[in-house]
Design a protein around this nucleic acid. Structure first.
Lengths: 110, 110
DNA sequence: GAATAATATATCGCTATGCAACATAAAAAT
DNA sequence: ATTTTTATGTTGCATAGCGATATATTATTC
């Protein structure tokens, strides 16, 4: 399945991008991805949470618990300095990747 | 690794695209991908050959051995009718996928 | 003439990871 | 009262990429 496999590699880029402007919690991230992609991309929690832990373990994002009255506890993740560098690098990789795929997959006249 | 994971999902699309215009053999496909992507994409044989077998098993491509004097035997794969449909569908999926990712990962002003 | 590189196909075993299913729990809506 | 939405989490299975290894023919280099 093209869809499923493709999603794998883009997962990190998506998450890092979404916590770039401000901290967000897991559930929020999953809903944002679904909404902004018009349902094209959907994240399973069994993928999302472990991925957040991985990114945190690598020092790219940093989570902290926030508890407010009248709300369930949430873990907000913010982009670290290191994560910002990684994000820039992954954005660049993504672009050259897409360009390369397009070059090859566009109907050829050879 | 963004690179590695991304490649997974795009692998089928790449192969199907390359055998669209005319039949090609495995080694040729791997060299073409490397060349046309300027080295951005590289296929390990341990990924490529099993993938060719999978695509053939699904009836999307069809291989046949060709032996010529002064050449090693080669297995040429051609796109089947069914494969052509799948390719069209995967191209479309790829485009909406890229569009969705771009929408989410482009620097946000929120 | 021998050694090396390029061509060409193939497999084993490890690892990474996405996801279905399951689990918990609080707040909001019906 | 019951259901839905919000919110986080885990177990275990299946898939698939890739490093390493293997085989064999043809072309090149020394």
């Amino acid at each position: 399945m093209l869809d499923r496999e493709l999603k794998k590699g883009s997962a990190e880029l998506l998450i890092l991008s979404l916590v770039e402007a401000r901290p967000r919690h897991g559930y929020e991230i999953s809903k944002l991805i679904e909404a902004r992609s018009d349902g094209v991309l959907r994240f399973n929690v069994a993928s999302l949470y472990p991925l957040l832990y991985r990114l945190e373990k690598r020092g790219w994002i940093e989570g902290r618990w926030v508890e407010k009255a009248g709300q369930r506890r949430r873990r907000y993740y913010k982009l670290t300095k290191e994560g910002r560098k990684v994000l820039a690098s992954q954005r660049s990789t993504w672009q050259s990747f897409v360009a390369a795929i397009n070059r090859i997959t566009e109907a050829e006249n050879a």
